[in-house]
Design a protein around this nucleic acid. Sequence first.
DNA 1: TTGTAGACTACTGTCGACA
DNA 2: ATGTCGACAGTAGTCTACA
Lengths: 77, 77
Amino acid sequence: MEIEEVFGKVLREIRLEKKFSQEELAHICGLDRTYISLMERGKRKPTINTIFALASGLNVLPSSLVLATESIFDLES
Amino acid sequence: MEIEEVFGKVLREIRLEKKFSQEELAHICGLDRTYISLMERGKRKPTINTIFALASGLNVLPSSLVLATESIFDLES
DNA sequence: TTGTAGACTACTGTCGACA
DNA sequence: ATGTCGACAGTAGTCTACA
């Protein structure tokens, strides 16, 4: 599994925990809804600025998104 | 100061701590030397995959790069 | 050893539409 | 509420070269 796929799973999990729709999250973060969809399915590799925007919208630390991603990623290898 | 500028400072600081030249780091990470230079000067916004590659080359956790970045970034605002 | 420039390719991120 | 498509603009990232 590629890094961006793991990140996508983490993103979706946290978004659902926070009870946001993709559209709500997109609006809060200033991103496009279809792009949230692409990221959650591992089709895009967000830049650091996008990671910060997502974290802000989800009300979590950017580093916690990355920590969750690397934890799952490391489990696999 | 923009996110990518803070990230650049963090990157340079850790690279120098580890006593790597830009060229050595670039080679280890599989990136271009001129691109390391661009990032350190805040001229580029790395994707999540690039952050993982840099962290691997520097022998630190990706999340620690982001944690250092957000810590400095939050100080300013 | 690093900064910078220019030219280039590939991909990030937007948008409108439809299932 | 989400996936997907196609078209698009902007930028990530490479490479060569020179100060």
